[in-house]
């Protein structure tokens, strides 16, 4: 066509195509890793979902079974961190943020059920892993501000905690079905504490805000379970108050 004396210098579009292709290659590389991570996340949650039908006394087998997919997820995250740290973090962040939230959520649930650092005897439910602890498990930095590297963001952590609350709401009801009247009370306190934490934040209109707005309904649901129990005098005395 109109070559060098045309409107467009052909070099412009050659350069553009090269840049677009470069991003495309990064995209492809990341997508493969992210799909692997997604698979391991699903397996983790699949294993952990047995918690809904397993009494606390038998929970350790579930928690142990979850360790393998969690470690697989960590391996995928390590690979992701290596690849993603070569490019500006926020240029591709939207590709993996969902999967990182899910990975964090799986670990939070596992940790809440007592999977993390269970020293001594028995399993203690009800612990919220901090963002730093998640970073330790995932082997990545968290909440970075001063350098452009792969990390777990505050938003991703908060999304994961909301998912945890949603899951625990279910667990509160299912515990009752299992004959466990103690755990709903524990969930109730936990969810309330976490909800109070979220109220400290000044969220702006975005996804996080929308999901946070839904938390109050979860709090109410768990409260209803505890109410039902207390009405029938089923709440164990020692945990009351």
């Amino acid at each position: 066509m109109a070559a060098q004396n045309g409107m467009v210098d052909p070099a412009i579009f050659q350069d553009l195509q090269a840049r677009v292709d470069e991003d495309g290659a990064v995209h492809d590389e990341l997508r493969d890793i992210i799909q692997t991570l997604e698979k391991h996340n699903r397996t983790t949650l699949f294993v952990l979902s047995r918690a809904h039908s397993t009494p606390v006394s038998n929970l350790s087998s579930v928690l142990e079974a979850a360790e393998e997919p969690i470690q697989n997820a960590v391996a995928a995250i390590t690979k992701l961190a290596q690849s993603a740290s070569k490019v500006p973090y926020y240029k591709f962040n939207s590709m993996w943020t969902r999967q990182m939230q899910d990975a964090a959520y799986g670990m939070l649930f596992w940790g809440w059920l007592g999977g993390y650092k269970q020293e001594g005897d028995g399993i203690r439910c009800g612990r919220l892993l901090t963002i730093e602890e998640l970073g330790e498990i995932m082997k990545i930095p968290v909440n970075l501000k001063d350098r452009d590297e792969f990390h777990l963001t505050i938003e991703e952590y908060l999304h994961a905690t909301i998912s945890l609350v949603e899951e625990l709401t279910r667990l509160a009801r299912n515990s009752v079905t299992l004959g466990d009247y103690e755990r709903p009370v524990l969930v109730n306190q936990f969810v309330k504490d976490l909800f109070a934490g979220f109220q400290i934040l000044n969220l702006k209109n975005d996804n996080l805000r929308r999901r946070t707005d839904g938390l109050k309904y979860r709090v109410k649901e768990v409260e209803d379970v505890v109410y039902d129990l207390s009405l029938r005098d089923l709440v164990p005395k020692k945990t009351e108050g």
Binding site: L128, I154, K192, A196, G197, I200, L201, K204
Partner: peptide, 21 residues
């Protein structure tokens, strides 16, 4: 707000999120 064991953690988050917003 009702007191919560996570207050300090969320206050830290609030500071960072406020800057972000």
């Amino acid at each position: 707000q009702p007191s919560t064991p996570y207050a300090a953690m969320f206050e830290g988050f609030r500071k960072d999120l406020d800057e972000h917003y």
